[in-house]
Design a protein around this nucleic acid. Structure first.
Lengths: 195, 195
DNA sequence: TGTACATCAGTGAACGCGCGTTCACTGATGTAC
DNA sequence: TGTACATCAGTGAACGCGCGTTCACTGATGTAC
């Protein structure tokens, strides 16, 4: 077999990474196969050696975030699952609702950048999105006292607050108001981990 | 001048209403001018007698929600601005995070249906979106005790929680989890209006 | 060790379809006389 | 009051462009002998 066995894999990875960044910036429909392949240093035609459609690429891109940063979240929380610390939840909130994350158009969480796109996409993409949320909720839940229905409710609400705060902040044209929303969500979320 | 003066206005209104519903269901890009005009009982060509572009229609559609339900919110809150009641905020939360609202694909709030679309649209559309959020925040803020920085933070966080909870619930393919998120956000938001 | 061969990742031209927009027209309706 | 006229909302065919996808090919690289 010509070409080393890793060669195709690494090309595929380059395509997915280019796609993840471009989708994050421009959304599903405004990104063309040409843009993705050019960013990956390749040409149009080769794309279908790796994916059966543009939608399949979208799924791979969302999923790649889950495997990357999402896996970090899990790892952070899973270091010692028997002794979960509230610090982990607080660090997560700190990072997620930070101004750095708000400005990081390339690296941001797809739940912020692509909610409508995912809602209208196919079930595989939506599953990746759901796994990402579950990772986040799981980390929050582990970081709170005990595993009561109460902490479950709190963890889910924290996720809604984090995602909602960032989605709003990203969409508002008045950056002062956007910042106000982000900071308010940040404070409220922090308080919720206290008591 | 032929045709009564209201005739064109009412045709325009029919187009906007059709567009609002279709955009809510399918997003900006998946709705065609043909679909909108057909739903309004007209044909393609006439569209440009009313709007200069598809984007202009999108702005009018988002804005029409603001003028419709958004105005109701304001009116509700503004009945007696000197004596704001926490009931108003609670009612708003009740309705916004209800399962009826989650299922109402046609009539739902554009902040839930179209966040990514608006984020990538032009400034006029984003302004409409912002006005909608401001109406919501204003209602929450009026419903809380006093006008302290504290109540402002709470009002903004409530908005983030409402929108975030619904965006997540709408996007999750597992409807049990979606419902869990909605209910959790509902409970937490209600609690926040208590103390 | 060197050479012919087979494989298949990557190329780039072409296809085909959809959709936003334009345009020449039609015909309904209000106004002037 | 009735009739000719002017306006302009609405029609539907056509245009043109972009983009997802296909396809015949090229050429780099591993393998067999």
């Amino acid at each position: 077999m010509p070409y080393s066995s890793e060669h195709k894999q690494s090309t595929r990875a380059k395509i997915v990474e280019s796609a993840r960044i471009l989708f994050n910036r421009h959304g599903f429909q405004d990104v063309t196969i040409d843009m993705v392949m050019e960013k990956a240093g390749l040409t149009r035609g080769g794309f279908y050696n790796h994916f059966k459609s543009k939608e399949a690429l979208f799924g791979a891109a969302v999923s790649s975030f889950l495997m990357g940063r999402g896996a970090e979240w899990r790892a952070d929380a899973g270091v010692d699952p028997t002794k979960p610390s509230p610090d982990m939840a607080r660090q997560m909130i700190q990072g997620y609702l930070s101004s750095e994350h708000l400005g990081d158009l390339d690296g941001q969480c797809p739940m912020i950048a692509l909610p409508s796109d995912v809602a209208r996409s196919n079930p595989e993409v939506q599953s990746s999105y759901q796994e990402l949320l579950e990772a986040m909720v799981w980390l929050f839940e582990s970081g709170l006292e005990g595993q009561t229905p109460r902490s479950r409710q709190k963890a889910l609400s924290l996720a809604a607050l984090c995602v909602g705060g960032m989605v709003l902040a990203r969409t508002l044209p008045d950056s002062t108001l956007a910042e106000e929303v982000r900071v308010a969500a940040h404070h409220t979320a922090s308080e919720m981990t206290m008591k």
